[in-house]
Design a binder for these strands. Structure first.
Lengths: 245, 245
DNA sequence: AAGTGGTCTAGACCACATT
DNA sequence: ATGTGGTCTAGACCACTTT
């Protein structure tokens, strides 16, 4: 019988979605699967690995393989609708995040020359000087997002944006003080699997995609003043956008 | 030397990003890797499998393993900014899609009772009757999106929305005719790995995540009239949203 | 016919966690 | 000390594509 690993994975998957194995529960181990299905250890290992790369389970070496849990952070892209206005529709996913504080760490600031894609997004000439601010966001002590913002250096070099502590209200408040308040935003995003380096920085369990977001912030006279590249642990986020017709 | 498969994958990955292997190019095959690295066939196979599950490569059995290409469709969630207004900022990703027609197939319409999550999204009581419209979208003959819309049955049962052909202008035009024009939209989305069933329906190469979107459409008096669940091949899409502060 | 990826077996060693 | 997942080898068979 070929296709054995798939079949074992199918079986376990069905038992997970039937509720036999709840989130956090321990799945049958490799030795158990070897016995019950009469297969080689490597086949059992591959069956579990299938569930892991699907994001359904994770392994704790030396302990066991467990069913994954999903408690997303709700990230609101914009909030044009008041909560009253939106009262009728409830989130499709269980709403959480309430009271889970977000920490910012590993802030690094530098000045460098804009790569092509940054120059394009900020409407600068290539190699123009830019201020680069990168940082990591943590929730419950776990890294959930990497972010790197690019600003035209001539605009912000003399402000706190060029310092690790950008001051009260953050970079947008400093931009406003400089007469370049951002008022229009565009976010472009896609999802993909992470590179090993990205997986390490976000401490991603395998089988977890990332969401890559590029946000461009424009002033009221349509001048781009920030390009922010974000990389999110997709397993940690639900994104919300709303807009009118 | 353990960790061999990872190392081989790292090596190939570096050679891909260095440009030695361009998108669409054929990678060294299993027999070649066995020779060059002096490993067992299965180790070589696993090394290639790593690149595949990362979304960097895909296998054509009997032929070879190839570097993946990425030519995304740009899906615009909303278009509040005129093209003139947005002229300064260019898309971060190479803009394509120009002239790639979208086909709709496999339309199915039925009436059934709302599951809990649909009832919640549409602000209906559980088990309320709903009209369900599902379909698949194709670009270049490849399936790129599954979509299933739910409408309150009492509102649309007598309209073409309950027919496979919803008529000119689509379902939203019919809703408008029924005095329930949708004007406000909220999209909630997340990215994750597909189930095997979803992977089959979207003909997904392994290593490709999906983006799951729930869109709720509200009338001007804040009544939800449609809940649309979409499942996108993440490798085929870049999503764009824009909004003001 | 030859070459390719896909999968399985049987046995081995390792690092780690739990008991 | 035992059990767990992680990985590797060496050899085998299959289905498929390419020549």
């Amino acid at each position: 019988m070929p296709e054995t690993a798939r079949q074992i994975a199918d079986d376990l998957r069905a038992r997970i979605s039937s509720g036999e194995f709840r989130p956090g529960a321990r799945l049958p181990g490799e030795p158990t699967l070897v016995q019950q299905y009469g297969v080689a250890k490597m086949t059992a290992s591959n069956a579990l690995k299938l569930l892991i790369t699907e994001g359904l389970a994770y392994a704790r070496p030396g302990s066991g393989t467990y069913v994954r849990e999903f408690q997303p952070i709700h990230r609101v892209g914009n909030e044009r609708l008041s909560s009253a206005r939106w009262s009728s529709g409830e989130s499709v996913w269980a709403a959480e995040t309430a009271g889970r504080p977000v920490e910012v760490r590993d802030i690094e600031v530098s000045e460098s020359r804009a790569p092509r894609w940054v120059a394009r997004g900020l409407a600068l000439s290539s190699d123009a000087p830019v201020i680069v601010r990168s940082r990591r966001y943590f929730v419950d002590g776990e890294p959930v997002q990497l972010a790197t913002s690019y600003f035209p250096a001539d605009l912000v070099r003399e402000t706190c944006i060029a310092q690790p502590d950008s001051g009260p209200g953050g970079a947008y408040a400093r931009l406003a003080e400089a007469g370049a308040a951002p008022v229009d935003f565009t976010e472009e995003l896609r999802a993909r699997m992470p590179s090993p380096e990205e997986a390490e920085q976000l401490a991603l369990p395998s089988g977890t995609p990332v969401i890559e977001i590029y946000r461009t912030a424009l002033t009221s006279d349509h001048r781009p003043v920030e390009l922010n590249r974000m990389l999110l642990n997709a397993g940690a986020y639900v994104l919300r956008y709303n807009f009118g017709s």
